[in-house]
Computed example of a mutant assay.
Amino acid sequence: MRLGLVGANSDARRRANCYERLPDVTVSGVVTPNTDPDWAAARYDDVTALVESEVLDAVDVCDPNTARTQYEMVNVCLDAGVGVVCRPPIADDLDEATAIRDAAGRGDVPVLVDALHRFARENRDAKEAVDAGEIGESTTVRTTRRLPAVGSSDRNDAAAYDAFLRRALSPDVARVRWLFGDIERVYTRIGVDEPSDNGRLTHAVVIARFASGAIGHLDVRVGNRYDRVSTDFEYSGTEGRLSYGSEEFAALDVAATTSFEPGVTASLRRPRPSSDLYDRHVEHIVASLRGDTDTVEAVDETVETLRTVVAAVRSSRRGVPVTVAEVTV
C-alpha cells in the first residue's frame, strides 16, 4: 500500500514512522513546507501535485491547517480516485461535511475519519466500563482538556476564532458522544484575556444536555504554544464513577458502590495508556483502507459531532443555549 501524508507537524512525523513499521506499507509523498532532510518521502507543496505525481492508495490528512481546506483536499483525492483519511472536524461547515459524507457513500474509494481518541487505552477502558454498566445510568460527564495556543483565537477575527473553537471542541464532543450518546442542547461560556471580550480565547466551557438526561461539562483551557495537551475526565452515574487524569493519576480509577455494602466504594486500577496508541490506530487505518475491517467512526457520526460543535460555537457568540437540532447549515 502506497500512502501520502499532509502535514508539517509532529503528528505527521509520528504517523509516518508508524506506517513505515507496517509490512507492505510505504509513505511515498508528503505535503509539507518543511525541508527536513530526514523525510525519506518526496515532498510536495500541494495535495494536487502529490496525487498527480505519485501512484497512491490513500492520503492521510494529518494536519488540515494548510492553505487548502480539508474539504478541498478530500475532493482532490476523490477526483483522482485516491482514498482519504480525514481529521475531525472534517469541514468548516455542515454543507461541506454533508458533501464529504455523500461522496463517501459513492463508489469504491474509501473515506475514513481519524478517530484517535477511540484507541487511547483510558477511553477504551471507560467505554467498556460504561457499556458494562459499571457506573449505572450516567448522570454527569466532566472533561477538562488543556491545549497549546496554535492558530488565532482572537474574537476580533471571527472566522479564525470560529475555526479555532471548532478544532478545540471537536475531540471532546466526539469522545463524549461516543461514550454517552447524542447531545440535544449546548450552552457555551468563554473566557478571554481582555475585559472587552474581544481578546484571545483562554478557556471555554460547554454545558451539554444529553438525550439520556445526563449533563455534561466540557472544559477546554488554552495555554501558550509550548504547552502540551493533557486530559482529565470524571464520568458519574447512579452506581459509581470513572475518573482519569493524564497528569495527576497513574491509571483509570473505577469507583463503584457495591451491592453488599451500600455507600462503600471499590477501586479498580487499570493500566496506564501504553505508548503504542498511534501504532494501534495506524494499523486500524490500514486495515480499513484495505477493506479488512470497518472504520471505527463513520462519516455520519462525524457530521453529527460537527453539528453539535457548530451549535456550541454559535452559543458562545450569542450567549444563550442552542439546540443542536436547529443547526442545519
Rank of each mutant, 00 (worst) to 15 (best):
324 V>D: 06
25 V>G: 00
216 G>E: 07
58 A>G: 07
157 D>I: 07
323 T>H: 08
313 V>F: 02
314 R>N: 07
147 L>Y: 04
259 S>P: 09
37 P>Y: 03
159 A>S: 11
171 P>Y: 06
108 D>Q: 11
49 A>E: 07
103 A>D: 14
164 F>A: 10
266 A>M: 12
324 V>C: 04
150 V>F: 11
276 D>V: 07
314 R>P: 01
267 S>Y: 15
98 T>E: 15
297 E>M: 10
123 N>F: 14
261 E>T: 15
7 G>V: 07
329 V>I: 15
31 V>T: 04
192 V>F: 09
63 D>Y: 09
309 V>W: 04
28 S>M: 04
238 T>F: 02
297 E>W: 11
20 E>I: 01
274 S>L: 12
238 T>V: 00
27 V>T: 05
116 L>G: 10
197 D>Y: 09
292 D>Y: 03
180 F>A: 08
150 V>E: 12
5 L>W: 04
203 H>N: 10
190 I>C: 08
276 D>I: 09
23 P>V: 05
196 S>H: 03
131 D>W: 08
248 E>V: 13
164 F>Q: 04
148 P>Q: 06
198 N>E: 13
202 T>K: 11
329 V>S: 14
240 G>Q: 03
4 G>P: 01
53 S>I: 01
294 D>F: 11
269 R>D: 14
47 V>P: 00
259 S>I: 08
267 S>D: 14
267 S>F: 15
62 C>F: 03
59 V>P: 00
171 P>G: 05
168 A>I: 02
61 V>I: 13
127 K>D: 15
56 L>Q: 02
285 I>N: 05
227 D>C: 07
20 E>F: 04
19 Y>H: 09
84 V>K: 05
179 L>T: 01
197 D>N: 09
296 V>K: 05
257 T>W: 10
170 S>G: 10
12 A>T: 13
28 S>I: 05
156 N>Q: 15
172 D>M: 10
184 E>Q: 04
10 S>E: 13
285 I>Y: 00
266 A>Q: 11
212 S>D: 02
34 N>W: 13
307 R>W: 07
71 Y>S: 13
199 G>Q: 02
2 R>I: 00
245 G>K: 04
122 E>F: 06
94 L>K: 13
22 L>N: 02
100 I>T: 12
216 G>M: 05
196 S>P: 05
67 A>S: 07
142 R>V: 13
324 V>S: 06
91 A>W: 09
